[in-house]
Computed example of a mutant assay.
Amino acid sequence: MNKLARVLFVLLAGVALLSSCKDGKSYADLLKEEDKAVKAFFADKIVINEIPADSVFISLQDVPNNDTLAVPYYKLDTDGNVYMQVLEPGDLNDRFEKGNDVNLRFLRYDLKALVNGSNPDPVGNTNPSDYITIRFGETTLSSTTQYGTGIQYPMYFLGNECRVNLLIRAKAGFTAETSTVMPYLYFIRYNKSK
């Protein structure tokens, strides 16, 4: 490598390193911000740190007056990257099986903006003809894995046509967004593909 090429390489590496930290924040700082946002979101919510032994979750239909604040969020993984609030458990006689193609319609909100008092616009695909299809239990197919592991958790416990709110931290979120350390609150409907 000649001298000019070395200098250019060092300069490009420096630019890449500086631009990799959002607003000059380190990855550790972004993780702290994410943790702070998650804690703030759960401050006025009921959180249950384990999956019910019988896998029967309290849902919106189980509480008086459809009060979503009375429906708990359940921690679904040991690291606390995914929390689920069940709105409708779906058809528990028609469970998801690994290998099923499942259509998802969702809206997601930037959790940091939400807890900071701004009213973020949701992003997603709620139109009836606009959905994504993933293969439940798939760990290698990029059309599924690009959405992260967190989005699949409800299918292990609920039935076809279930609806949930999911809080997903960046580690379990969209793979392309892992480095942004952005937690999201999702509203998701799951339907088996016909």
Rank of each mutant, 00 (worst) to 15 (best):
Y147H: 01
T133D: 02
V86R: 06
Y83A: 03
V181E: 05
C21Y: 09
L141K: 04
D44Q: 14
T175K: 10
A5C: 12
D23Y: 03
P89I: 06
P122C: 02
L76T: 03
K192S: 07
V82Q: 14
G148R: 09
T78S: 15
G117I: 06
S59Q: 08
N93P: 02
M155Y: 03
D67T: 06
P183I: 02
D130K: 10
V47N: 09
P154M: 11
L76Y: 04
A28D: 07
A43C: 03
S20I: 01
A43H: 05
R169E: 05
L87N: 15
V10S: 12
G150M: 03
P72E: 02
N116G: 06
P122S: 12
I51M: 04
L167Q: 01
L8S: 13
N93S: 07
P122H: 08
M182F: 01
V115W: 00
N65R: 14
G80N: 02
Y73C: 01
Q61R: 09
L18S: 11
E50Q: 15
N93D: 14
D121V: 12
R6P: 00
V82C: 14
G173D: 05
T145Y: 03
L87C: 07
V63Y: 02
P89F: 04
T144G: 01
N160H: 13
G90H: 10
I151H: 00
C21V: 00
N119I: 11
Y74Q: 00
E177K: 04
Y109P: 03
V56Y: 03
P89C: 02
G80D: 12
K22V: 01
T68A: 04
Y73F: 10
N81G: 14
N93C: 00
R189F: 06
L92K: 12
F96K: 01
N119W: 14
L114E: 02
V47E: 08
A43Y: 08
E161S: 15
A70F: 04
P64L: 08
L4R: 10
C21F: 09
Y190E: 11
T126L: 15
I151W: 00
K171H: 00
G173E: 02
T133M: 00
D35K: 07
R169H: 00
D79V: 12
Q152F: 04
D67H: 13
A113T: 07
L8C: 10
L18E: 06
P64A: 09
P183K: 02
L18A: 12
Q146M: 13
T178A: 04
C162Y: 14
E50M: 05
L92D: 09
I168P: 01
Y186N: 05
T145K: 07
G173Q: 03
D62S: 07
F42V: 05
D91G: 11
D77I: 01
L31N: 11
G117E: 14
I188T: 15
T145N: 05
T126Y: 12
D77V: 11
K194R: 10
T180Y: 07
S142D: 12
D91R: 14
V86H: 13
F157A: 11
R6A: 02
V7R: 14
N2C: 10
S19Y: 10
D29I: 02
I51W: 08
D101S: 15
I58K: 10
S118P: 06
A70Y: 10
D130W: 08
A43W: 04
A113Q: 13
I58S: 01
G24T: 10
K45I: 05
L12P: 00
E97G: 14
D29Y: 15
L114H: 06
L111T: 00
G24V: 06
K3L: 09
E161T: 15
K25E: 13
S26I: 06
